[in-house]
């Protein structure tokens, strides 16, 4: 577990460098990515599905990123982008492609749906954190209640 966390820290920092994030902010991104990976890998032990774990981890990562961005006065993407990279369903996407290449369409569809669900879960986590931080300044919809 510790080894995984250290590897995740290194991976997130490396991705920060790939996305050209300033060196003084890369370390925070690494910590956020590590937290996200810890949540994502430990929640399934308590019987949560991996999709739900991905959503919870993405929510935590985005929440921490927004807090840090307020605190350091930088665009929030500098923290969110490396923070959610460890959650990207790379392995499942690869297995999907492998199944389709092997003409095993049934398994391919199943794995593809799992991949899409996990990507959607990450998006949902991002959206929840963003909604919390944009209470009171979002865009209006459907009914004009303020006049």
């Amino acid at each position: 577990m510790w080894l995984e966390l250290i590897f995740c820290f290194i991976a997130t920092i490396a991705f920060g460098i790939i996305f050209n994030i300033p060196l003084r902010l890369v370390w925070w991104g690494g910590l956020i990515g590590m937290t996200a990976w810890f949540i994502y890998s430990s929640l399934p032990y308590f019987g949560w599905s991996s999709v739900f774990a991905a959503a919870a981890a993405a929510f935590t990562a985005a929440f921490l990123s927004h807090l840090l961005a307020r605190f350091r006065r930088v665009p929030v993407t500098t923290f969110t982008i490396p923070g959610i990279i460890p959650l990207v369903p790379g392995g499942r996407a690869y297995s999907t492609m492998l199944a389709f290449v092997e003409e095993d369409y049934y398994n391919g569809l199943q794995l593809g749906v799992e991949t899409v669900l996990q990507a959607g879960a990450i998006a949902a986590g991002l959206v929840f954190a963003l909604s919390i931080f944009s209470i009171g300044k979002g865009v209006g919809q459907r009914y004009e209640t303020n006049r």
Binding site: F15, I18, F19, T77, T80, I81, P82, I84, I85, V88, G90, G91, Y94, S95, L98, A123, L126, V127, L130, S131, S134, G138, V139
Partner: peptide, 28 residues
């Protein structure tokens, strides 16, 4: 082979368009 291929391809993940797309859709 799976693990090596995933490791080799992960730097290509389009992280910025993905995150920005969610953000843009949410802010209208």
């Amino acid at each position: 082979v799976d693990q090596v291929i995933i490791g080799a391809l992960i730097p290509l993940v389009p992280g910025i368009p993905l995150t920005n797309s969610v953000r843009d859709l949410m802010s209208g």
